[in-house]
């Protein structure tokens, strides 16, 4: 299967933060959700993919091309949405269009008009008067108006009301229908991913934890509930993270079948949500750090 985005052993360090040996690939024709907590490197990764940052080492390639030689060709094929407003504030939407349109060879005025009508965006009002939702709609309109093959979005649903969040997901679902487009987006709101994501990429503390097909996650991972006396040094190793309470323990395993074989009927296995996975991975990592520091 063709990869649209490939990061190979990418390292980027800042003061107090580092992306370590990150290798991620995003498959063509699918929606990949990009999850992880605050400050674990999601935005940095997206900036590396957009060439807003350059890696200290490692390779970033899009559509099989690198930025060093094909920067403009790559960017022609990307539509982008950032979580904060990047449009000029003191001009109107139609003036903004006059600025962005000439940058793209495949700009399509009918699509632009279609989304402007759909989102009821005012063309003659200054962009600084737009609400957060309108700004997001405007950015999305620009991202979709030049037949981009890859749509990259950084937290597009944060700060949006639930109704527009659903509308947005429906629109994204619609544009995926021809099988030619690819969407890569980061989010905190993991329930959004249940609706549209085919793949989930999860990073934690600058490291790639997994990229899996969405349905596979429920097959592999499980929340395990049982009595605390089942836990000892050996059985604890089976889990990514453990939460103890007076009534027993709750833990996350990444090998449902194995856990089932070990504990049999003494524990209850439940389907985890993405939030469970994020939470226990963080817990597990923190414990690891604690016990070794």
């Amino acid at each position: 299967m063709e990869n649209v985005i490939e990061l190979n052993n990418v390292t980027k360090s800042f003061k107090g933060f580092e992306l370590k040996d990150l290798s991620i690939s995003v498959k063509k024709g699918f929606v990949t959700g990009f999850i992880g907590g605050n400050g674990v490197g999601k935005s940095t990764t997206i900036k590396l993919i957009m060439n807003l940052l350059r890696p200290d080492s490692g390779e970033v390639s899009l559509f099989g091309m690198n930025y060093r030689e094909h920067e403009k060709e790559i960017k022609q094929r990307i539509g982008f949405v950032f979580d904060n407003n990047i449009l000029y504030e003191n001009i109107t939407l139609s003036e903004m269009k006059r600025i962005i349109k000439p940058a793209y060879k495949n700009w399509d005025d009918t699509i632009f008009q279609h989304y402007v009508n759909l989102f009821e965006l005012p063309l003659k009002k200054q962009i600084k008067t737009f609400s957060k939702g309108m700004l997001m709609k405007a950015s999305l309109t620009f991202a979709l108006s030049h037949h981009a093959e890859l749509i990259i979005m950084d937290e597009p649903t944060s700060g949006l009301d639930p109704i527009f969040r659903r509308e947005l997901l429906d629109i994204l679902h619609d544009i995926m229908q021809d099988g030619e487009k690819t969407i890569f987006f980061s989010t905190h709101i993991t329930t959004d991913l249940d609706r549209i994501a085919d793949y989930i990429t999860f990073i934690h503390n600058g490291q790639h934890i997994f990229t899996k097909e969405h349905y596979k996650i429920e097959e592999d991972y499980a929340i395990v509930k049982g009595e605390t006396n089942l836990l000892d040094r050996d059985t604890e190793r089976e889990f990514i993270g453990i939460r103890r309470s007076n009534y027993g323990f709750e833990a996350l395993t990444m090998n449902r079948q194995r856990t089932q074989n070990i504990f049999g009927n003494t524990v209850i296995l439940e389907k985890p949500t993405l939030e469970d996975i994020m939470l226990y991975t963080k817990k597990g990592n923190d414990n690891y750090v604690e016990s070794y520091s």
């Binding site: 957009m50 807003l52 920067e71 403009k72 950032f82 962005i100 793209y104």
Partner: peptide, 9 residues
Amino acid sequence: YLMNSLPYT
């Protein structure tokens, strides 16, 4: 961000 995300070097 905007200028560098558009197809300009």
